[in-house]
Nucleic acid binder design. Structure first.
Lengths: 178, 178
DNA sequence: CATAAAAGTGAGTACTCACTTACTAAGTTA
DNA sequence: TAACTTAGTAAGTGAGTACTCACTTTTATG
C-alpha cells in the first residue's frame, strides 16, 4: 500500500461517511487527497472499487470483534463485552463505522448480516445463564446496542454513557452505580 | 394538489427511498412520473424542495403518533402502544419511513430528535410504574423500537414478529404466549 | 547501470446533472 | 370575451460526472 493509495482511501472514507457515496465525486476525492484523479482509477478500477475496498476492511473488523468475544469463557463476560463495544470504539474510527451503517440502507451493498455469528454467540450465552427466551433476549440486546451505536456515531459518546451501566445492571453484571 | 404534482412526489419518494437522494436525478423522477422535467421545478423550485416537501409530511406523521400515545391514560397502555408502532406501519408506508431513517445520516436534513416528546412520555410512564431508572428504561425501549423499525423497513415484518410479544412480556403487559 | 514494471499525471472524452427559457393550453375571474 | 394566472412542455444551458489515454517519473531487480 503506497502512501498516495492510502490517502485516497482516507479521503474517500471521510467524504463518503460525511456526505454519502453518491454525493461525492472522484474529483473531490482526488483533490482532498492531493492526488491526480487518474490515480484513483489506476488503483481501484472505478468509483465502486473504492467503496468495495472500504467494505473489505469492515468485514475484517467485524470478524475481529467476533473473535474477541468468542474467546471469552464466561457468558457474563460475553454479554458485558458486547455491551461495551460501542463505547470502546475510538472516535478516529467513527467515519469508518458511520459508512458501514449508511450502507445498510443501500441494497446494492448491504450484506445480510455479517453480525449473525455474534448474535448466535449472545444467544448461547443467554442460554447458559438459563434465560427463558435466549434467542429473543439476544436480539433485544443486539437491537439496543445497534441503536446506541447509531446514536453515538451521530452525536458522540457523552449523551449515551449512562446507558452502558444501566444495561450492565439490567443484565446483572457487577459494577459501580449508574 | 394537482394529479401530476402528486405523481412527482410519489415517484420522488419511491426513488429516494430505494436509492438515496443524491443517487436519483430529477430526470429519472420526471420519467417515472411521466411528466416533463421542467414541471418539477415549477412546483418545487429545486431538487431540495422536493425533499423538503416529503419531510414536512413526516413531521406531521410523527406528531400524529405522539398525539395518539399521549391520549392514553394508563402508562401500561402507552408502553404497549409504543411497542406496537413498528408492527402497525402499513407496508405501503415503508418507503416513506425508510427515507426518514436514511436522512438521519445526512447532517443537512437531520433534525435533532423530533421523537424527544415521545421519549418523555415513555419516561413518565415508567416513572408512574415505579421503575428505578425511568429515563434509562425509556431510552432502552426507544432504542429497541428504533432498531426493530430499521429491521422491519429493511427486510419486512415477518422476521421480527416474535420480538413484539417478547417485549410485551418483558414489560409485563398481559397477552398470549410468545 | 539497464530495463521493465509500477506509480503517478493532466488533459481530454462522452455523457449526465440540476436547472432555465420560451413557449402553449387550459382554466379563472372581471 | 378579454385579461390574467396557472399547469404543463420541449429544447436547451453550462457545469460537473466517471472514466480513459498518452505520457513521465519513480522504484525495484537481475
Amino acid at each position: 500500500m503506497t502512501d498516495k493509495k492510502q490517502r485516497i482511501l482516507d479521503s474517500a472514507l471521510k467524504l463518503f461517511a460525511q456526505e454519502g457515496y453518491s454525493a461525492v465525486s472522484t474529483n473531490r476525492i482526488a483533490q482532498d487527497a492531493s492526488v491526480s484523479e487518474g490515480l484513483i482509477f489506476k488503483h481501484f478500477d472505478n468509483k465502486e472499487g473504492l467503496l468495495l475496498a472500504l467494505k473489505e476492511k469492515a468485514e475484517l473488523r467485524i470478524h475481529e470483534i467476533y473473535a474477541y468475544l468468542s474467546e471469552k469463557k464466561n457468558p457474563i463476560h460475553v454479554i458485558e463485552s458486547f455491551i461495551d463495544i460501542p463505547f470502546t470504539i475510538d472516535p478516529s474510527e467513527y467515519d469508518f463505522w458511520r459508512l458501514q451503517f449508511m450502507l445498510k440502507w443501500d441494497n446494492r451493498y448491504y450484506m445480510p448480516d455479517k453480525m449473525d455469528n455474534i448474535k448466535n454467540l449472545l444467544t448461547e450465552s443467554f442460554h447458559e445463564l438459563n434465560y427463558e427466551f435466549p434467542r429473543e433476549e439476544a436480539e433485544a440486546l443486539d437491537h439496543m446496542i445497534e441503536s446506541i451505536s447509531i446514536g453515538i456515531l451521530r452525536d458522540g459518546m457523552d449523551r449515551h454513557k449512562k446507558q452502558r451501566n444501566f444495561l450492565k445492571k439490567k443484565y446483572k453484571i457487577s459494577i459501580a452505580s449508574i
